[in-house]
Design a protein around this nucleic acid. Structure first.
Length: 614
RNA sequence: GGCUUCGUAGCUUAACUGGAUAGAGCACUUGACUACGAAUCAAGAGGUUGCAGGUUCGAAUCCUGCCGAGGUCACCA
């Protein structure tokens, strides 16, 4: 931040000139002053104590005196226990507020010429989106907006896992039990319909497995393979995968289908395309409700061959090893990672094969400097390996790879498990938050002047505001507990609380009509709440910078909350429209407008739209 | 078991990356709508930052060891 840097260089200069010591600017810490102390900016002097061999008080006075003399922006200072609190001049704040108010891009950082691609969502096409995807999508979307505002050129993409055994399970179940049902004939949203067949498959498979467990073949395997201390039921639980691959009739059919798919069997391909298109139509509706779009979609079915080819090239360059059975491996021992398989012995692709291909394809398409993957932290290991492989292949963007790992979402009563039916469906969740918003808005809202369509837009903004804020206010790294009750809360630290501050301002600005900014320059009697608001506004660009460098929307969410909270208090304490003096009214209205703008832009970064009334 | 992430008020969480008296929200108790919107504000109560050491002017944050909870170590995705 400009002012902070200026303060730092002044201190470095002064200590060099007076004491002949050179100070590493990184050592200095400059930041906003804590609420309960007098001042606007604070410098911590402790880091200089050892270097200069003076008492904290002496150094504090030295810095304070020097800065007051050298910098027009600084009016006075005080020293408390090794902290120099600087008070900025009124005119500094007037100039700042005037420019922030006039600049519609306030908070945006300079274009930096870097191009960053961000991947999020990455669903499988065999079932509808759920709460986990929602966190992923909101994080990805928000980071994209933040990076854009921080000066990057951003490309939003997703990779769709549209092939593989999972979608074959749904396809097979539809073929066997579906009776040619379609989204059109049933009125069921496409992704949900396909999901139903995935569940149907798992159900039938479980039944088949249960029956097989009573067969003579099964009892033979039990006697051969079961450990003595192991119970029969836990043995069968662990054996299920192997059963699917070796003994299951349904499993055999699904695998045959996958094989046919890879061979390009026209009938299977047609079925695959039809069902995937149902899913895409369903996903699109969900994305639309969430308010997200993508610049480009990548499909696994289109990049896995490229991955295979690149691996074969790497093999020629002796970067990888081929085993006797034909499988190809990479050895990452030198960076403390294991050996990792890249191609199966039969030459078919594994998951990482496709990721390698996708990465290369993307670079060919966009020539990106950075690539961010928004993927749950259960895949930390996978991405370490992937990045190391791309590094080994000397890809030009290898240094710019970043895995934005977010913690998985738990429910109050534990993990989400699709098998136990405890997943929270994305569409259901969206519908329910909107409903709650609607009933609350009807009860306490002020919507008489709006028509039906406008009202519905308001309900949607409030409901989604609550949901998005609830999810994004938490640090992405952290595992989060999603309490459905709390997520539709609209009081306290919530999206609607922030929206409400904005709505109050809009109401005031409507009533104020046009006003002039000029008289505010003679207003010098800042109230503490006003000063605090100015200081918060001043920090906005810094929040953007930090949020971008840490890929952390929660910083923006918490900032918006702090600003809204501070505003609500100010609103309560000070008359705005009816301020006694003209200069106070002018100042406060300008402050209001600037706050509304920052709140709106900040929330927009979270994908949250502001209602004008609520 | 190896590697790894995380333990902050009853619950959900913040702490400017080592800085001032650990800050909010929910829930609980109490007050404030004839001033611009009460989805608001104010006040109260709630903490040995998992435990024990260490590093230093200063530790929720860094190092070590325990305790507890996740994740991961597939020719799955």
């Amino acid at each position: 931040m400009h002012l902070f840097e200026k303060i730092e260089t002044e201190i470095v200069d002064a200590t060099h000139r007076v004491y002949g010591k050179s100070v590493d600017p990184g050592l200095l810490s400059v930041g906003p002053t804590r609420k309960d102390f007098a001042g606007d900016m604070t410098v911590v002097v402790f880091p200089l104590v050892k270097l200069l061999r003076k008492s904290p008080l002496e150094i504090g006075n030295f810095i304070g005196e020097h800065l007051v003399a050298k910098m027009d922006e600084i009016a006075s200072f005080n020293v408390v226990q090794g902290f120099v609190n600087l008070t900025l001049t009124k005119s500094f704040w007037h100039i700042f507020l005037t420019s922030a108010h006039a600049d519609p891009d306030f908070g945006s950082l300079q274009r930096n010429g870097e191009k960053v691609m961000i991947e999020f969502a990455s669903p499988n096409t065999n079932k509808p989106l759920h709460l986990g995807h929602i966190r992923n999508i909101l994080l990805g979307w928000s980071c994209a907006q933040i990076l854009e505002m921080a000066g990057f050129e951003v490309v939003k993409v997703q990779v769709i896992n549209d092939r593989g055994i999972a979608i074959c399970k749904s396809m097979l179940a539809w073929q066997l039990y579906g009776e040619r049902i379609t989204p059109a004939s049933s009125g069921i949203k496409g992704d949900h319909l396909v999901g139903q067949f995935y569940v149907e498959f798992e159900k039938r498979l479980s039944a088949e497995y249960a029956e097989w467990q009573t067969s003579t073949e099964a009892s033979k395997i039990i006697t051969e393979q079961k450990e003595e201390e192991q119970s029969v039921s836990s043995f069968f639980k662990a054996f299920k995968n192997q059963y699917f691959n070796t003994y299951s009739d349904l499993g055999a059919k699904a695998r045959t289908m996958l094989q046919k798919w890879e061979e390009g069997d026209p009938e299977i391909r047609q079925l695959w395309e039809m069902m995937n298109n149902w899913v895409y139509a369903g996903f699109d509706r969900t994305y639309d409700r969430l308010g997200v779009t993508f610049d480009r979609l990548y499909y696994e079915s289109e990049t896995w061959q490229l991955g295979k080819k690149e691996i074969m090239d790497g093999l020629k360059r002796n970067l990888f090893d081929k085993q006797e059975d034909g499988s190809i491996w990479v050895d990452l021992d030198h960076v403390n990672l294991d050996k990792k398989i890249l191609l199966r012995s039969d030459g078919t692709a594994v998951y990482i094969t496709q990721d390698i291909g996708t990465a290369m394809q993307r670079y060919r398409d966009y020539g990106i400097d950075r690539m961010v993957y928004v993927v749950a932290d259960e895949q930390n290991h996978h991405f370490k390996v992937l990045f190391e492989i791309l590094n080994l292949l000397e890809e030009p963007y290898a240094d710019g790879l970043y895995h934005l790992a977010y913690g998985m979402v738990d429910l109050p009563d534990g993990k989400m498990k699709s098998r136990e039916g405890t997943v929270v469906d994305a569409d259901d969740l969206i519908a329910s938050v909107t409903e709650v918003a609607e009933s609350l808005a009807i009860e306490k809202g002020d919507l008489d002047n709006l028509n039906k369509g406008e009202r519905e837009e308001v309900f949607k903004r409030i409901g989604m505001g609550a949901l998005k804020f609830f999810i994004l206010k938490i640090n992405p790294l952290k595992r989060m507990t999603f309490d459905p009750q709390a997520s539709v809360d609209m009081q306290g630290q919530t999206g609607p609380y922030v929206q409400n501050a904005y709505v109050r301002i809009q109401s005031i600005l409507r009533k104020a009509g046009s006003f002039t900014v000029d008289p505010m320059h003679t207003y010098i009697d800042f109230q503490p709440t006003e000063k605090h608001l100015l200081s918060l506004l001043f920090m906005f660009p810094e929040v953007i910078r930090r949020a971008a460098s840490e890929y952390d929307p929660s910083l923006v969410a918490n900032y918006c909350y702090d600003l809204a909270k501070s505003y609500h208090r100010f609103y309560h304490d000070a008359p705005i429209l009816n301020a006694r003096k003209e200069e106070a009214r002018s100042f406060r209205l300008t402050l209001n407008a600037a706050i509304a703008q920052v709140l709106s832009r900040g929330m927009k970064l979270l994908g949250i739209d502001m209602p004008a009334r609520m």
